[in-house]
């Protein structure tokens, strides 16, 4: 039996291949021959990196329509490429554009989808993916029907690993969608927080409404600085305008998986936990002993964050 062809929908960030796409080459390589699909006007020059991380082929389209992200031309081109190449499985990372493309592609082909998979494998020809099912269960799920199967993989489910190979580049042209290009990008605005990238941080200090007022968020930033950590926030204070949206951790914000997550004045609403529940160690500071965050915390501190945070920062500074 020929090797299964596993495609990785690959996103290009400002500084090269998006790290979450590189992660997916790891399972792709374990399951068959890993091929990257790159539709980006900035896609030239990434094939070397993709080869190093295990892609044997790069399907590359660098047309102008791919200079800023719009789902429709991606889906039209991808649907055409699938038709002519017939891959077995397409893996999508957990990013906004990947979800956009995967969902629309599912409706276009149509094909079944699995979202938020922690693991993907084949049992013979049957696809088996592991997904979370509530707070304390997980499920093995499969997709029936025709290939390719579309599976979105959770952030950090796999680590990127070097394969030291080289990829063959197959250039293709964008296919325009039957209804034309209906969405026009007017502008793209960067709002990056000054600090460290949340998703890559191994330590995160986050603050919530329990800090009382916007000025007190500085206590979180101070501790983060001392711990060399990134800074996160609950939605309550993002919506209140204390910090930009890029700080938000949770279901509608970022999903993080640091080794240590410190939550100060955060109640632990299920939507917040959706973004940080997989952290390795969780420290929570909250003055309400009944706060749900304590069910998840490894170390729970019942107390006033406004008192504890500055003392903790001071102590860590002195320890150095």
């Amino acid at each position: 039996m020929a090797d299964k062809r596993i495609w990785v929908w690959t996103e290009i960030a400002a500084d090269g291949v998006h790290p979450l796409s590189l992660e997916l080459l790891t399972p792709a390589r374990e399951l068959g021959s890993a091929e990257a699909v790159v539709f980006s006007a900035a896609g030239n020059g990434v094939s070397e990196t993709l080869g190093e991380y295990g892609a044997s082929v790069v399907h590359l389209a660098t047309d102008e329509v791919f200079s800023s992200f719009v789902a429709e031309p991606h889906v039209a081109t991808l649907a055409w490429l699938i038709e002519s190449e017939r891959p077995d499985l397409i893996l999508f990372p957990s990013t906004f554009p990947a979800r956009d493309v995967m969902a629309r592609l599912a409706g276009t082909l149509p094909r079944g989808v699995i979202a938020n998979a922690a693991k993907v494998e084949f049992d013979g020809d049957q696809l088996v993916a592991t997904v979370g099912y509530g707070p304390d269960s997980e499920a093995s799920v499969t997709l029936n029907g025709e290939a390719p199967y579309l599976v979105q993989i959770r952030r950090k489910a796999y680590g990127a690993s070097l394969a030291k190979g080289t990829a063959e580049v197959k250039e293709i042209d964008a296919v325009s969608s039957p209804s034309g290009n209906r969405v026009q990008v007017v502008e793209t605005v960067q709002e990056e927080s000054a600090g460290m990238n949340l998703e890559d941080a191994s330590v995160i200090v986050s603050g919530g409404r329990g800090l009382g007022q916007p000025d007190n968020f500085k206590l979180v930033e101070d501790l983060a600085k001392e711990m060399n950590a990134a800074v996160g926030a609950s939605r309550a204070i993002v919506d209140a305008g204390w910090v930009p949206y890029s700080y938000q951790v949770g279901q509608t914000g970022k999903t993080v998986k640091p080794s240590v997550y410190v939550a100060a004045g955060i109640s632990g609403a299920i939507q917040h936990i959706a973004g940080m529940g997989n952290s390795q160690y969780i420290v929570a500071i909250n003055n309400d002993p009944e706060a749900p965050i304590f069910e998840l915390a490894d170390l729970g501190v019942v107390g006033d964050a406004l008192t504890i945070l500055p003392k903790l920062t001071e102590r860590i500074k002195n320890e150095k």
């Binding site: 079944g112 304390d136 002993p289 304590f294 490894d298 729970g300 501190v301 107390g303 008192t307 504890i308």
Partner: peptide, 29 residues
């Protein structure tokens, strides 16, 4: 449905929460 659940398992979360109480003056630090 194309998506089918084959099996559901409980996952053991062996979280051992230790909760400590601060005395209001930073004793937990």
């Amino acid at each position: 449905a194309r998506e089918r659940v084959l099996e559901i398992r409980k996952v053991e979360i062996d979280k051992q929460t230790r909760v400590i109480e601060d005395d209001g003056a930073g004793s937990s630090v």
